[in-house]
C-alpha cells in the first residue's frame, strides 16, 4: 500500500533532475547522448553539428553541465533504487525501532547528490580548463565531506546530515554559477529583464 511513498520519494529525488532534463537537455539529441555517455565527445565531434549555434561538443559549459547531470542521475539511481524497490511493498520502515523518515531522508540525500554532481561537473571542468587547483581541491574535499556527512544517517541523525549537505549544495551551486561565468549582476539583470 505504500505505492504512494514510492512515487513520493521517487519524485523528490528524481523530479528536479527530470525538470532539468526536460527543459535543458531533451531538445537536443546530442545532449541526450552526452548525458548518457559523456565519453562520446571525440566521436561526436566528427559528426558534429554544422551550422548550429553553440554546438555542444565545442561548448565546454554545456558539455560539463550535461555530463555532470548525467553522472549525477546515474549515481542517484544506483543509490536509491534498492530503497525504492522496498518502498513499493506493503510496509514501511520502523519495525525494529527505526525512523519512519528513512524513505524521505534517503530521497532528499539522493537529490542533493544529483545536484552536487552536476555542480561538481561544471566546477571541475572549469578548474581543469583554467588550471585552478584551489577549485579542483574544493571539489575533492567537498565530495569527501558530503559523503562523510551521510554517515550520520546510519544512526538516524538525519538533522545532523541533511541540513549541512543542503548548505554545501547551495554554496557549490553558487561556485558553479560563478564558474559558468555568472555573477550577481546576471541575476540582477535577469530580475530586471523579467520585470520589463
Amino acid at each position: 500500500m505504500t505505492v504512494m511513498e514510492f512515487f513520493g520519494c521517487g519524485l523528490i529525488a528524481f523530479g528536479p533532475p527530470f525538470s532539468m532534463f526536460c527543459l535543458t537537455i531533451c531538445k537536443d539529441p546530442i545532449r541526450i547522448i552526452i548525458l548518457i555517455s559523456a565519453e562520446a565527445e571525440a566521436g561526436l565531434q566528427k559528426v558534429s553539428e554544422v551550422g548550429v549555434q553553440n554546438p555542444v561538443v565545442t561548448d565546454r559549459l554545456t558539455l560539463s553541465y550535461v555530463a555532470g547531470l548525467g553522472f549525477g542521475i546515474m549515481s542517484g539511481a544506483f543509490s536509491l533504487v534498492n530503497v525504492l524497490a522496498d518502498a513499493i511493498g506493503p510496509g514501511t520502515v520502523g519495525l525494529h525501532g527505526d525512523s519512519p523518515y528513512f524513505f524521505l531522508a534517503s530521497a532528499f540525500t539522493t537529490l542533493a547528490f544529483i545536484l552536487l554532481h552536476t555542480f561538481w561537473g561544471i566546477i571541475f571542468f572549469q578548474a581543469l580548463d583554467m588550471k585552478n587547483y584551489i577549485l579542483l581541491a574544493y571539489v575533492f574535499f567537498c565530495h569527501l565531506s558530503v559523503s562523510a556527512l551521510t554517515l550520520f544517517n546510519k544512526s538516524q541523525s538525519y538533522a545532523a546530515s541533511i541540513p549541512p549537505i543542503y548548505i554545501i549544495t547551495l554554496v557549490t551551486a553558487g561556485l558553479a554559477f560563478k564558474a559558468a561565468g555568472g555573477s550577481f549582476n546576471n541575476v540582477k539583470a535577469a530580475c530586471v529583464s523579467r520585470r520589463n
Binding site: 505504500t2 504512494m4 519524485l11 514501511t92
Partner: peptide, 26 residues
Amino acid sequence: RLFLKPSFAHEMSTLFAGIGVFLFSF
C-alpha cells in the same frame, strides 16, 4: 510477513511532498 504500516496521512504527505518538489523544481 510482519511489518509496520504507515498511516494514510503519512503516505499522502510523502506523495504530495514529492509532487511539490517536482513542480517547484520545474
